[in-house]
Each structure stands twice: as structure tokens, then as C-alpha cells.
């Protein structure tokens, strides 16, 4: 198929990653090679094959609606890079 630099840029934006030009070149090249390899699955005719999202057939795993104590708030926020008055804090979100 061949991946273009523009596609790499688009995918990077979706994944919230950024690369400099050299990295971009390298990634485009590497991803291109990997995609060329993985593309071989499209040789197979799978028109009558069901996809397997899970390998072990389970269904309806449910829990009762019982309250479990929440995490104490100091532990909720203990790992937070920035916090304020019991909240997590991030740069201002503009809507």
C-alpha cells in the first residue's frame, strides 16, 4: 500500500505524538516496511471467517450493583502531576 509522510503526520496527530523531520522520515520508512510485511494477511480469503476479538468464549460477566468504597482522595491525587483544591489540574481547555 505504501504509507506517505502526510499519513504519518495525520496518525501522529491522532495519537498525540510529534516527531521532528528526521524521525518522521525514519518512521515513514519503518512503518512502510512493516505495513508491506503485514499486508500479506490480505492474501487470505476470509470472507467466511468470523473475527475473534476474544479467544475464550465468555459472555454476560456481570457484577451486582453493590457499593465499594472509593479510593481516599489523597491517594486519588497522589500521583497527579498537578492538582488544586481536590481537582486534577491541566492547562486551560478552550471550548
Amino acid at each position: 500500500m505504501g504509507i506517505t509522510k502526510e499519513e504519518v503526520e495525520y496518525i501522529a496527530r491522532l495519537a498525540r505524538l510529534e516527531f521532528d523531520e528526521t524521525e518522521k522520515e525514519a518512521f515513514t520508512h519503518q512503518l512502510d516496511k512493516i505495513l508491506e510485511y503485514v499486508d500479506k494477511i490480505n492474501e487470505l480469503d476470509t470472507s467466511h471467517v468470523q473475527p475473534s476479538s476474544h479467544v475464550i468464549p465468555l459472555e454476560n460477566v456481570l457484577r451486582e450493583d453493590n457499593v465499594k468504597e472509593s479510593l481516599p482522595r489523597d491517594l486519588v491525587l497522589a500521583n497527579a502531576p498537578k492538582k488544586e483544591r481536590g481537582y486534577f489540574k491541566v492547562p486551560k481547555v478552550i471550548e
Binding site: 495519537a15 512503518l31 503485514v38 471467517v49 473475527p51 475473534s52 476479538s53
Partner: peptide, 25 residues
């Protein structure tokens, strides 16, 4: 990057879904 690409619009069927079918095989 590879995973984002294979799930992204337009490629899902050819990559992710296809891979799940191959997994069945």
C-alpha cells in the same frame, strides 16, 4: 503509530478486522 493506523478510518477492515479473522484461522 502502527496500531493507530490500523484502527483509523479507512484501514480498519483491511488491517484490524482482517487480522481478527486470521486469528480465527
Amino acid at each position: 503509530m502502527l496500531g493507530t493506523y490500523s484502527l483509523s478510518s479507512g484501514y480498519y477492515d483491511a488491517y484490524y478486522l482482517k487480522a481478527l479473522k486470521v486469528r480465527t484461522l
